[in-house]
Write a protein that binds this DNA or RNA. Structure first.
Lengths: 249, 249
DNA sequence: TCAATAGTGTCTTTGAGACACTATCCG
DNA sequence: CGGATAGTGTCTCAAAGACACTATTGA
């Protein structure tokens, strides 16, 4: 923001404003595709981190997979624009939405100068289906291991940065539960950590660590029906469905 | 970036692109102003964190202090734009420049929709003077304790977020030396930490901690002339004068 | 010698991880 | 009972802080 005052008027001509777009990196946990990898012997992780990509219907990069995104409308905030992109491309609601970074390299779009504010979203895929809007030829979930390649524009760089951010943030912030239903067991929460970080956690240590953060609370309910001791259900203390406002930690 | 394809053509009319600007939060360490606070007894901190503000010459917020900033030129990246703002408003070079956040609230500029990509810069003020460009009525360093208030637009919110980010980052990243000359003593480096975090550090523990990061190296030189044991001079291992490119940790 | 700051040694505390152990369900 | 998962106890190790101690200069 701020001053237009220091813009001397004689460069008005070249001052065509860059296009402003919003792209969204949409993450979800989904069952591992058994066709992809022939079930490694030691790996017991059944959920894998996935990202939603759309296939471009026009040039440039026609036919390439890309992050969903589009122009910012004049009557919506950046975050609202990201939420709209999410809603248009899928029928999913974001449990968590955070601004990632703004990409503005000169040559990132061959059509002309474009600056993109990128958000990343965590969604519960549950049993909901992707409902691609009318403009989208195709939308599909891709496992991030390995990262799909190549992508249109600089979207590979963006996706890698989003992955780095998510994997770091899940270690110190309380966001893993955003992939889960409102109530969940500690084993489910631990499985989310393990799927994102790719590292096994000790169940006992994990329980103590996450309880020490005081961000979840045990409910009275338990899961019945297993052939073992029934686990307690927990609930996150912070609200799980509101969009974050402004800069976040 | 990405698609303009999903923009159905009938909303072209309302799709006037938002103005895109870059603002810069310029931090420096400067001697405490003895007139401001009458030298608290216990406080031995002689350096204080300061931020550079410019006084607005036009409406809106005419006469108010604001962060330096302006329109992004079509032929410069966002980071180049931030560096140019810095150069135009001051004669200082940034030792460190990092993207902070992009602010896009609908009502943040009364003149119309404006989205601002905000960077923060660390500069060595040394003996260099601020050389305000021709367009700037006035530029001045303000101590951030307390934060100057009120500022134009949403710049108070931006400044507070930048402060939060800097104070966090200095704890885990190797950036404190960016406020110092190319070679510096550990006592100088510790003084930077203390000025930013507001907390005293034990000299011995601080030495071990920073040496464990292996980001600085002892030089042969020492500081002569004091009436005490001469301290070693250190040098940061990473380059101190290059602008960061792309997303950073 | 003293005053002052540089730099080291070492004890305590704290938190993370390894891992053995007990608890409670189903069949 | 056995198999499976839930949950607890406790040991070890490493990093961070408190703080006493030694080292080296100028005056």
């Amino acid at each position: 923001m701020s001053d237009t005052t220091e813009t001397t008027e004689n460069d008005e001509a070249k001052n065509v404003a860059p296009s402003l777009t919003v792209d969204v990196v949409i993450f979800s946990l989904r069952p591992r595709d058994p066709l992809q990898l022939p079930e490694e012997p030691g790996a017991e992780i059944s959920q894998e981190l996935h990202v939603l990509l759309v296939r471009r219907a026009k040039e440039p990069f026609k036919g390439c997979w890309a992050l969903p995104g589009g122009r910012v409308h004049p009557d919506e905030s950046l975050e609202q624009s990201a939420a709209r992109q999410l809603a248009e491309k899928t029928s999913l609601r974001a449990a968590y939405l955070e601004q990632l970074y703004t990409f503005g390299r000169l040559s990132r779009d061959p059509r002309g100068r474009t600056v993109s504010v990128v958000y990343y979203a965590l969604v519960r895929s549950d049993k909901q289906q992707i409902a691609p809007g009318p403009e989208v030829a195709e939308a599909c979930w891709f496992s991030v291991d390995p990262v799909p390649n190549p992508l249109a524009f600089d979207h590979s760089e963006i996706l890698n940065y989003a992955l780095w951010r998510l994997r770091n943030k899940v270690k110190y912030a309380n966001i893993a539960f955003q992939f889960l239903p409102p109530t969940f067991t500690l084993t489910q929460l631990r499985a989310v950590y393990e799927a994102i970080t790719g590292r096994k956690e000790d169940p006992g240590n994990f329980k103590r660590k996450v309880e020490a953060t005081e961000t979840i609370v045990k409910t009275e309910a338990r899961v019945e029906g297993g052939r073992h001791r029934p686990p307690s259900l927990y609930r996150a203390i912070v609200q799980t469905d509101l969009l974050h406002r402004g800069p976040v930690s």
